[in-house]
Simulated scan of single mutants.
Amino acid sequence: MRILVPAQAAQVVPLPQGLSWQHFPGTDADDPYVTQPVNDMLEMILERDGEGPGIARVFVKLRQELDFIEASASYEETQPLVYVEGAFFATWCALHGLLNPQRYPDSVLAPWRARVATPLQFLHGPCQRIVWSSDITDEANGFWGYYYKGFGAPDDQRWQADIQAVFGSSNHFRDPDEARTPDSWEAFDAIAPTIAMRFAEWRATLAAG
């Protein structure tokens, strides 16, 4: 669960005692985001209002959950293929049994196993533009964190490094006039063996202790 308050509505939303929309917690030199526990279940993430002292948005989420992929619909209005690489990764994991089978049963995955729907349609559809840690099997959570997010992986063995090696660049970093990696099964097949290799390497590392 995540509750997002847009900037235009923020001022009418009351904040917990000690917080105000007019003053961002901490000093001006602090990070543009501040995470604050609410209770044992929830935490708040406060986002600075640009370069000013105020708060622009407040995110409220379950403390035990991590969002691995969050695809912004507004960003895709100007960059339609910006999340295609993330969609490739989520789709590969789905097709290899690394997503929670209760949320992603075979009946849901059938169009992607048959390749009659595209990877980006998987991210937009069954994933509803976001992949939480609870959407992933317990084993695969470690793989997502290590490889996809790069928590502890060597720089040249992280997802972003492999994207650059296979496609030349991520769509996220391409100039407006550059061709984009397409939302196609051909492009998926170009990166899929690399994901499989990294998953096998990661499992071998775990087995070795």
Results as ranks from 00 to 15, higher is better:
residue 1 M to V: 10
residue 1 M to R: 13
residue 2 R to C: 10
residue 3 I to D: 03
residue 4 L to R: 10
residue 7 A to H: 12
residue 8 Q to N: 11
residue 9 A to M: 09
residue 9 A to D: 11
residue 12 V to C: 04
residue 15 L to F: 08
residue 15 L to I: 10
residue 15 L to T: 07
residue 16 P to M: 05
residue 17 Q to P: 06
residue 18 G to Q: 10
residue 18 G to A: 07
residue 21 W to R: 04
residue 22 Q to W: 00
residue 25 P to H: 06
residue 26 G to V: 10
residue 26 G to H: 00
residue 28 D to W: 02
residue 28 D to G: 15
residue 28 D to Y: 00
residue 29 A to G: 13
residue 31 D to A: 12
residue 32 P to M: 07
residue 33 Y to G: 01
residue 33 Y to W: 09
residue 34 V to W: 07
residue 35 T to R: 14
residue 36 Q to A: 10
residue 37 P to M: 10
residue 38 V to G: 00
residue 38 V to S: 02
residue 41 M to D: 07
residue 41 M to S: 13
residue 42 L to W: 15
residue 44 M to F: 05
residue 45 I to C: 10
residue 46 L to Q: 02
residue 46 L to H: 05
residue 50 G to A: 14
residue 50 G to H: 08
residue 53 P to C: 02
residue 57 R to D: 02
residue 58 V to S: 04
residue 60 V to N: 03
residue 60 V to A: 10
residue 60 V to S: 02
residue 61 K to E: 12
residue 61 K to M: 13
residue 64 Q to Y: 11
residue 65 E to F: 01
residue 67 D to E: 12
residue 68 F to W: 11
residue 69 I to F: 06
residue 69 I to A: 01
residue 70 E to T: 13
residue 78 T to A: 14
residue 79 Q to K: 15
residue 79 Q to Y: 06
residue 84 V to R: 07
residue 87 A to P: 10
residue 88 F to S: 06
residue 89 F to G: 09
residue 89 F to Q: 08
residue 90 A to L: 09
residue 93 C to K: 03
residue 93 C to W: 00
residue 94 A to R: 00
residue 99 L to G: 08
residue 100 N to H: 10
residue 100 N to Y: 07
residue 101 P to V: 06
residue 103 R to D: 07
residue 105 P to S: 05
residue 106 D to R: 05
residue 106 D to V: 00
residue 107 S to L: 09
residue 107 S to G: 02
residue 108 V to A: 01
residue 111 P to K: 08
residue 111 P to A: 01
residue 116 V to P: 06
residue 116 V to T: 15
residue 119 P to L: 01
residue 120 L to C: 00
residue 121 Q to A: 14
residue 121 Q to S: 13
residue 123 L to N: 07
residue 124 H to D: 15
residue 125 G to A: 05
residue 132 W to E: 05
residue 133 S to T: 05
residue 135 D to I: 04
residue 136 I to W: 05
residue 136 I to P: 06
residue 137 T to I: 06
residue 137 T to D: 00
residue 138 D to W: 00
residue 138 D to I: 12
residue 138 D to K: 12
residue 138 D to E: 15
residue 140 A to P: 06
residue 141 N to A: 04
residue 141 N to P: 03
residue 142 G to W: 03
residue 144 W to S: 04
residue 145 G to D: 07
residue 146 Y to A: 12
residue 148 Y to A: 05
residue 148 Y to M: 00
residue 149 K to T: 11
residue 150 G to L: 07
residue 150 G to C: 02
residue 150 G to S: 01
residue 151 F to G: 02
residue 153 A to R: 06
residue 154 P to N: 08
residue 155 D to C: 01
residue 155 D to F: 00
residue 156 D to N: 14
residue 157 Q to L: 14
residue 158 R to V: 09
residue 158 R to H: 01
residue 160 Q to C: 06
residue 160 Q to R: 14
residue 160 Q to E: 13
residue 161 A to C: 04
residue 161 A to H: 12
residue 162 D to Q: 08
residue 167 F to Y: 15
residue 168 G to V: 03
residue 171 N to V: 08
residue 174 R to M: 02
residue 174 R to N: 05
residue 175 D to C: 00
residue 175 D to T: 11
residue 176 P to N: 04
residue 180 R to Y: 00
residue 183 D to W: 03
residue 184 S to N: 03
residue 186 E to W: 04
residue 187 A to L: 00
residue 188 F to R: 03
residue 191 I to W: 01
residue 200 A to R: 09
residue 202 W to D: 10
residue 203 R to F: 01
residue 203 R to K: 15
residue 203 R to S: 12
residue 207 A to K: 12
residue 208 A to W: 06
